[in-house]
Design a binder for these strands. Structure first.
Lengths: 104, 104
DNA sequence: TTTCATGTTCGTCGAACATCGAACATGGTG
DNA sequence: CACCATGTTCGATGTTCGACGAACATGAAA
């Protein structure tokens, strides 16, 4: 598996970030990552097929919200720290208002 | 023209608000209203047809972001104050990070 | 090497969305 | 009343989105 591309943080648009977060599955994903830790895709227990999960990861990655790093056969994801530089306080505010992560 | 319906603020979902703001035209609309004043739809100088503008107003209204009030043949819109109760700090943070309103 | 685990990519589907112009409704104005 | 201004609603069009399963790629384990 090739390492995935990440956009330069300066090119990320606010509306793109908002659109990425305007989905319950993705918002739940991000909420789970809010502790700053990294996780593999498989650790998320969400009611979607793995291809769908992969799609959501891609959307979040392309919106500058998370980073993926391939390690062996697994893929670690985590929040992207530069997002805070680009849009200070945005993610924190949204996550503070979001419901706790979905499980199941 | 009948007065338009507004959703109870408690029923508004965060993802719905984010989705409504995840559009450049709508975000620009909201940014223009950020001073708290009311405006008629016609005052917005945006590069869309008036039917499209009307549609965007409806989306923002149904997301609890703005209120419409019909007066004679005109329609006054303004930010909806209760949104701040429902999602404190959200709109302020987003607008602080948004580019200034489009013109033209 | 064969097998398994983990993700990604691809093709497809229906639903939702953004946009437009036309038609309509309503209310002032002359 | 006829006319104009202001918006809304409707129908059509094309695009994007979220979802799925199948197929593929990769690396680890047996």
């Amino acid at each position: 598996m090739r390492q995935p591309d990440h956009p330069a943080i300066d090119t990320v648009q606010l509306t793109e970030v908002l659109a990425a977060l305007a989905d319950p599955v993705r918002l739940s994903l991000v909420a789970t990552l809010a502790d700053g830790g990294a996780r593999t895709c498989g650790e998320f227990d969400l009611p979607v097929a793995k291809s769908t999960l992969s799609h959501h990861m891609k959307v979040l990655r392309e919106a500058g919200i998370l980073t993926s790093r391939v390690e062996g056969t697994r893929c670690f994801v985590a929040l992207r720290p530069e997002l805070e530089d680009r849009f200070p306080g945005l993610l924190g505010r949204i996550l503070a208002l979001a419901a706790p992560p979905l499980t199941g």
